[in-house]
C-alpha cells in the first residue's frame, strides 16, 4: 500500500524522455524567427530597390495626380458609393418588410430577388446595366453614369441589406410590437415608429461593413465607360499609370481607399463592441 502511493507520488517528478513541452515550444519559436530572418534577407538581397522605388514610390509621378486625386476621383468614388448605399438602404428595407410580410407572394418575390442578386457578381450587374440601352433602344437611365452606378451598386447591396434588416427586425423583442399594438398603433405605424428604429441600431455594424464593400465595388463603375470628369479612384489610378508609364498612381489610389476603409472598419468594430457591452 505505502509502496504504491510512494510510486504515484514520485512519478510526476521523474525526468521525461526527450524534451519538455516548454523546451519544445522555445525551439519552435526560435525556428520561426530564423525562417522570418532568412526570408527578409533573401528578399532584400534579391530585390532591385531602386527599380521598386522608381515604379511604386515615384513621388514626382504621385504629385502629378494632385489635386484631381481628391477633387475628382475620390469625390466621384464617394458619390457613387453613397448614392448606391442610399438606394440599397431604401430598397433593402422594403425587401426586408416584404420578406416578413403575411402576404405570401411578397415573401416569394423578396426571397427570389435576394437569392438572385446575392448570387451574381457585381461586375456582371454592371455589364447588364451597360447593355440596357442596347436592349431598350432610346432608353436612358436618369443621371447618366451616376444613375447607372447608383442602380448597379444599389440593387446588389439591397439584397445584402435586406437580409441584415430582416435579422435586425427579428432581433427586436416581440414585446415591443405588442406594446405598440396595445397602444392602438396599426401594424405599419408600429413598424415605422418602434421596430425599425431599433432594428437599424442593431444592424449598424453590418451596414457599415456593407458601406466598405460598396466603396470597393464602386471601382467597377469603369465598366460603364466614364468621362474624365466622372472617373473614380481605381480608373483614375489606372489612367494615370498609363499616362506616366509608371504604376505609382495605382498604389496612391490604393492608399486613398485605405484612408476611408480602415477608419470605417474601425467604426464598425467599435459599434459592434458597444452593442456587445450594452443590454
Amino acid at each position: 500500500m505505502s509502496a504504491v502511493s510512494e510510486q504515484q507520488d514520485t512519478s510526476p517528478a521523474e525526468p521525461r524522455k526527450g524534451l519538455s513541452p516548454r523546451k519544445k515550444q522555445r525551439i519552435s519559436r526560435g525556428v520561426q524567427y530564423a525562417v522570418l530572418v532568412v526570408v527578409l534577407v533573401v528578399l532584400a538581397a534579391l530585390a532591385d530597390w531602386a527599380a521598386i522605388r522608381q515604379s511604386f514610390f515615384n513621388l514626382d509621378v504621385a504629385r502629378q495626380g494632385l489635386p484631381d486625386l481628391f477633387t475628382v476621383a475620390l469625390r466621384n468614388t464617394v458619390i457613387y458609393t453613397v448614392s448606391g448605399f442610399v438606394l440599397g438602404f431604401v430598397l433593402g428595407l422594403v425587401l426586408a418588410l416584404m420578406r416578413l410580410s403575411s402576404v405570401a407572394p411578397y415573401r416569394w418575390v423578396s426571397a427570389i430577388y435576394i437569392e438572385i442578386f446575392r448570387g451574381l457578381p457585381m461586375l456582371l450587374i454592371f455589364l447588364l446595366i451597360g447593355s440596357l440601352p442596347l436592349a431598350f433602344p432610346g432608353f436612358e437611365l436618369p443621371g447618366g453614369v451616376y444613375g447607372s452606378a447608383a442602380l448597379g451598386l444599389g440593387v446588389v447591396s439591397a439584397a445584402y441589406m435586406a437580409e441584415n434588416f430582416r435579422a435586425g427586425i427579428q432581433a427586436v423583442p416581440k414585446g415591443q410590437m405588442e406594446a405598440a399594438r396595445s397602444l392602438g398603433m396599426p401594424h405599419m405605424r408600429a413598424m415605422v415608429s418602434i421596430i425599425i428604429p431599433q432594428a437599424i441600431r442593431i444592424v449598424l455594424p453590418p451596414l457599415t461593413n456593407q458601406l466598405v464593400s460598396l466603396l470597393k465595388d464602386s471601382s467597377l463603375v469603369l465598366i460603364l465607360g466614364v468621362t474624365a470628369a466622372q472617373v473614380e479612384l481605381a480608373k483614375f489610378g489606372n489612367d494615370q499609370s498609363s499616362t506616366f508609364a509608371n504604376p505609382t498612381p495605382i498604389l496612391v489610389c490604393g492608399l486613398t481607399y485605405l484612408l476611408i476603409t480602415i477608419p470605417l472598419g474601425y467604426v464598425a468594430r467599435r459599434l459592434e463592441a458597444r452593442q456587445g457591452a450594452g443590454r
Partner: peptide, 20 residues
Amino acid sequence: IDAARRRIGMVFQQFNLFPH
C-alpha cells in the same frame, strides 16, 4: 381593433418600454 385597443391600457410583465 386598433380603435378598440386605444380604450384598453395594457401593462406587461417585462414593461416593454421603447428603449430608444
